[in-house]
Nucleic acid binder design. Structure first.
Lengths: 332, 332
DNA sequence: TTGTACGCGTTATCAG
DNA sequence: CTGATAACGCGTACAA
């Protein structure tokens, strides 16, 4: 059925090892022979059998990407860019959206050259595989393994700083509560740190926690804020994610208020989608392109140096202004 | 480094072929031996090498999914469900978001058991691989290969029918023009057929074509409609995709009109996201779950019968009402 | 320049 | 019940 180098060898009247050499561009083949072999391979529709090749060469030019939740908008761009970049480097990215450990296990068996794991905020405890170099993204330290993360704390801090400089003094943070997972802890800490730094009110009115990360949760959290009445009413809100921002905008619109005239909104997650919401939203965070670059480079580094172990955060936080915030005169 | 059945054999003082049998649950192994082997394998951290296994068994329990555009919301749910369903059937889905032909080629080499190809509306000509069973989804017929598609024409027809029954007589279709690709042709035909069937005005005012499928395109197309003034103004619009619907809603809101009081909106693409837009939108189309079920079954059928060739459309069109349309009194 | 022999990790077939 | 042995398709020393 499938055509192998032996078939080609037979057709070309040479040994199959000569075929192998010719196909792999070894110099030790006469040019005329190579031409003939290449041509025959072509017309017979030869495809190298990756399995067999890998079995002997320990190289598949393939990288496994574990991506447990496809739907998170923030990551679909990221994965796309990374996939392209890897392709430029000669690797083909294979994505699995099955549960983390099952995917790692599968990739381990498949003998991909390396695995990139996008760690979801919630969920199963990660069990690294000893059989393949892995890079983890978006989680806390994993002993013995390289981890890349983004500095969420700094992002949120800069968001508050930005609002503060525009004159805002009553700012509310809308996100999942800090206890939920380390990433939320991190963001929360950044917010609290900023409150201290700029001497802003730190009471209950500075927070509205959502139950989860769906837009409905953001909507509810914002509605709670709007119900607080004049004394607790902020002049600006910081949203902890793109999805939450959608809900926040929706709640504000439904209440009859307008962004940014009545209330300023700034969102976490520096992804293009922030510009496509019902109102384009100014966002803070590490740009997707920067993330993709760093992840790809790290991955290739890990590939070369399988034993490396580090915990590195990306601190290249940037603000993209889209007009969802307004400068105001701070009240005396 | 990696532990193989030979290592286990050595540790257990048996031959490697006995290990293989024990691991694969052959009945021809003494129970005590099996227990011992299993235990040793466990504690040595044995992982079967898929490559080697495949090399001999011609089976990888792996299915390649070619998914060229990750960002299309409609498909992310679909892929997720399919991945889960395949997992239940003992297959692990591997996704590639690289260009179609490159991905097919890669999967062909990797020797996945079958390939599912989501064909993007635009783009490269598809070159099926002779080395692996393939199922194509969402495109026109491909000679010699099984293709599954959805009946877009019927969906759009039913959307118009639905609006007609509610009393609407001036309905505008917002989508990419029919010449663009067969899928748009199909939708367009459904709309035109409905206009005929229900004797509705078929002039220019019944159409507003978008340049592309981004929400901005939908927005512009709807703005064009709104500029037409009273005589060309429809009481309802049919949107050709989820993304376009987002833009249409936005244009309507910006113009100060309200849905459904001033204008009814119905969207194509029966996906949950339609309920999460700024206004929940009534949508028509084959439900994602139905699509996933059919695709999975077809895929497994193709897997068993690699030579099958068919072109089948899914006609199970359903309307999910979300209150974005309003019954009106047709003017005499 | 070309061909031979071997091994990669596994399953399957047969003989013991 | 268990153990040799061949095969899967390929790359690579090494021999010719």
């Amino acid at each position: 059925m499938t055509v192998t180098i032996k078939d080609i060898a037979r057709a070309a009247n040479v040994s199959f090892s000569t075929v192998s050499k010719a196909l792999n561009g070894s110099a030790r083949v006469k040019d005329s022979t190579r031409q003939k072999i290449l041509q025959i391979a072509q017309q017979m529709g030869y495809h190298p059998n990756l399995m067999a090749r890998h079995l002997v060469s320990k190289k598949s030019n393939t990288i496994g990407v574990v991506w447990p939740n496809v739907n998170r908008a923030a990551w679909s761009d990221l994965v796309t860019i990374i996939s392209h970049k890897l392709k430029d480097r000669g690797y083909h990215a294979l994505i699995s959206i099955n549960p983390i450990n099952s995917s790692i296990e599968m990739f381990g068996r498949l003998l991909v050259d390396a695995v990139l794991v996008f760690c979801p905020v919630t969920g199963e405890k990660i069990e690294p595989s000893p059989h393949v170099p892995q890079l983890f993204y978006g989680t806390t330290q994993i002993p013995g393994h390289p981890v890349l993360n983004i500095n969420r704390s700094l992002s949120i801090f800069k968001a508050v700083e930005y609002l503060y400089r525009m004159g805002h003094r009553r700012i509310t943070y809308i996100c999942c509560p800090p206890g939920r997972d380390p990433n939320q802890e991190d963001k929360y800490n950044g917010f609290v740190r900023a409150l201290h730094q700029f001497n802003l009110p730190q009471g209950e009115e500075a927070f509205s926690f959502s139950d989860d990360f769906n837009w409905e949760d953001g909507c509810r959290a914002m509605e709670a804020v709007l119900r607080r009445g004049a004394e607790g009413f902020p002049t600006a809100v910081v949203c902890g994610s793109c999805e939450l921002t959608i809900g926040v905008l929706r709640a504000i619109r439904r209440s009859g208020l307008r962004v940014p005239d009545d209330i300023s909104v700034i969102g976490y997650d520096n992804i293009p989608q922030m510009g496509s919401l019902e109102i384009p939203v100014t966002a803070v965070g590490v740009p997707v392109q920067v993330m993709a670059d760093n992840i790809t480079e790290c991955l290739l580094a890990v590939l070369k140096e399988p034993q490396t172990c580090f915990y590195r955060t990306l601190d290249d936080v940037q603000i993209v202004e889209r007009g969802s915030t307004r400068a105001i005169c701070p009240e005396a």
